[in-house]
Structure formats: structure tokens, C-alpha cells
Amino acid sequence: MKKLSLLLKTIVVSLTFFSAQAQNVDDVVNKYIETIGGKEKLEAIKSVKMEMIANYQGMEIPVEVCTAKDGKMLVKINLMGKEMTQVAFDGTSGWSTNMMTMKAEKMNSEDIENMKNTASNDFPDPFLNYKSKGYKAEYIAKETKEGTECHKIKLTKLPQTINGEKVDDVSFYYFDVENNVIVLTETEIKEGQMKGQMASSTAGNYQEVEGVYFPFTISQYGQEMTVKKITLNPTIDPKALEFKAE
């Protein structure tokens, strides 16, 4: 009976722990969604256009990023007065400019599949209705990052295909405990020379745009970007997404 009693206590403690963990995740995510504008306003967004300046090795490069609920994406840069498309995806197919040859190249089947899994699901935020997307969120712990106390949450998205193999798409998000916004994201690099290492991106200087808060200061792969303007619900020109072979 003592062994049975001990077993029952262990089960109760375990269930309590997992219940508390789930509650922590929901509390953090719900506060975050509410802080940046609320579920209703986020769900009403159909597209977003961000006009930014990227600081790369002392150069200021204008960058324009358009994303949409239906999975469309358009990323353009202006390099020394020449505008070029870095990413163009219409929801089913896409292309990009090879920065070595400066030629337009169609995305391969793996890139297209991965884009389909993330482009629409992550819009306008991966945590919005994350469960219905098939995503899984886990509360890890409280951690201090650059002097800021944060909730660390692991988000597992739909698997990606890398070199013919399905791999977990996992990122770690750090939510500012005091302000309830994401300040840091860590994602494992899946291929190339940096494979296995963690890529970090930071977000700050949140500002309101039509009742929704966006970060206006972003750092990715050591590249600082300053958002100059955000437009909600712009129309993405279908012709801009068409493949342009030169």
C-alpha cells in the first residue's frame, strides 16, 4: 500500500507539474498577444509592408518586406541604387536573386515546401492561434538576457525538409517578463558551415501602428535593421512576384 500511495503521489505531482507548465505557456502567450494588439486586431491583418534600413558593413541598405496572410512574400533591397528582389513567393512557387551571379533563380522544391509551411502560418505572428497551426509551445524557464528577465519558451513548428530529410523546426523565444513582448529569438541553423549553431535575432523599440505593436529595431545575424515605416493591409503587386529571368 505504501508503494501504491507513493506511486499515486508521484503521478499527482507529475500531473500538477505539466498542468502548471501548460498554464505558464498560455499565460505568457496570451499576455503577449494582448499586449501587441489583441487576437481580433491581429486576425484582421491581411498583409504587412515594412520599410527598413539595414546597416551592413557601414553601408545603409534600404529593404522592403511585404508579407501576407495567404503566404505571399516579397523582399526587395536597393544596393547602390539598383533595386533587386531577394525573395518573391506567390504562395505556391517562388524565386530569388543569386547575389553572386546577380541572376534570378527559381526556388527548389524543398524551399517551396518549407515556405508553404511557414509563410502563412507565421503571419502575422507565429504565436497567434499556434495550436490550430499544429505548433507546440513549451515553457522552459525564466532566464536573464542582457539584463532583462525573460520567460523562455520553446516553439516547435511544422517540420522542415533539409536535404531530403524531415527535421524539427524549433525556435526559442524570450519574452520580457515586465513588458510581455519578445526581445530575443534563437533558432538552430539546419545546414551549411554554421549547421548546429544557434542564430539569434533581437527585437526592440516597439511602436504602435493602427493599434498593433511592432518592433522597430531588429538585429539578425549581426545585421542591424531600423524600421522606418510599417503599412498594414497593402496590396502586393502580383507582377512583382512573377519570375524574371534575365
Results as ranks from 00 to 15, higher is better:
K2V: 15
K3Y: 12
K3E: 14
L8Q: 10
L8E: 08
L8I: 15
K9D: 11
L15A: 13
T16D: 10
T35R: 13
I45T: 03
V48M: 10
M50V: 13
P62F: 11
V65Q: 15
K69W: 00
G71A: 04
I77P: 06
L79A: 15
T85G: 11
F89P: 01
G91M: 06
S96W: 09
M100Q: 15
E110V: 06
D111W: 12
I112A: 01
E113S: 12
K116E: 03
N121D: 14
D125I: 09
S132H: 08
A137K: 10
A137Q: 08
E138N: 10
E138P: 00
A141M: 11
E143Y: 02
T144G: 05
K145R: 15
E146I: 07
T148Y: 04
T148Q: 08
K152A: 03
K154T: 00
K154H: 05
T156K: 09
L158H: 02
I162F: 06
K166N: 11
F172C: 12
Y173S: 12
N179R: 12
N180I: 04
E186Y: 08
E188P: 02
I189Y: 03
K190S: 12
G192R: 01
M194A: 13
M194Y: 09
G196Y: 08
Q197Y: 10
A199K: 14
S200V: 10
Y206T: 01
Q207M: 05
Q207Y: 04
V209S: 02
G211F: 00
G211T: 01
I218A: 02
S219M: 12
E224P: 04
P238E: 07
E246V: 12
